[in-house]
Design a binder for these strands. Sequence first.
DNA 1: GCGACAG
DNA 2: ATCTTGTCGC
Length: 214
Amino acid sequence: MKSSVTIEEFLKKQQDCASKAILEGNPKVELFGGLDLTFESPYKTPTRAWACLVVFDGKRVISKTIVEGVVKTPYIPGLLAMRELELMLKAFEKSNIKPDILLIDGHGQAHPRLCGIAMHIGQELDIPSIGVGKKLLVGEFSYPAPRRGAFESIIYKSRVVGYALRTKEGVKPVFVSAGHKVSHAFALELTLSLCKYRIPEPIRLAHLNLKKLR
DNA sequence: GCGACAG
DNA sequence: ATCTTGTCGC
Ligand SMILES: [Mg+2]
């Protein structure tokens, strides 16, 4: 059996994670990983779930890895990692090809305790990571101009914790924040470079693969 | 106490 | 997060 972590314990883990945050770095990366999950019964717990890791080289998909598992924790805002981290790590471990950086469907530092799921994953694997959320969890921002590449800071407790980025002309922005060993500026530029549509290709393709699977 | 709240 | 075709708009 695997000792189930309590909310209290996980909150401590997040404090620890935030205290060890490394939010700087402009790593040379060539293989980009994208991670996402899908659930058999999203409103029930426990439920069967699958995680997918897509490794993209900027042009082609180098590998896709899907793993199945049982998720026992319900979704609680601020505790997404409690629900999705394990399966994501499992997918990474199973993959023979390891990306140089991970893009996660969720936030990095833009989090109530400055420790979103992207930061957890980056630290656990010690590889650069970036959080890309479709909706904001905490903080304030102004809508960036409609042109692709326009961005505005996400301010939380008087500091910049990420950016609202327009990844496609005239389409809703995404919220990018550094997770591990990258700066927010690096996260912004890399994310934009990987966007053909609103969502960066690695994450978009991971999501699509899971959608076909069910 | 009320409202907001990644996926 | 998931159920789903067409439809409207950039
Ligand atoms: Mg997701």
